[in-house]
Amino acid sequence: MDKTYYDPADLKKFGNIADFEPDLAKKFFDYYGDVFKEGGLTAREKSLIALAVSHAIQCPYCIDAYTSDTLEKGVTEKQMMEAVHVAAAIRGGASLVHGVQMMNKAKKLSM
């Protein structure tokens, strides 16, 4: 057992989650595959969304995977960073918008 939580090599072993529970893993990976197929959104657009979400949830595996995937799909580095800023804006905004709740409560409590 390693003494670190994250090992880049573990990303390649993602499929191994089926070893402990194959049926649910199959459902998940089938679903995952379908999600990323070209549909109303292009595969490129979906990959960029995945890159932004990877940063929002701060998943190192996902960041590695979707950095490669967006590069492969011809996304520019500027576009990739803009996607990360979208994640940052939503995260920042999510904190700040709660400021309204704080204000409401503060006003209610205060004379």
Partner: peptide
């Protein structure tokens, strides 16, 4: 990294 889909 690998090339993406040729048509896209």
């Amino acid at each position: 990294f690998l090339p993406g889909d040729q048509a896209e």
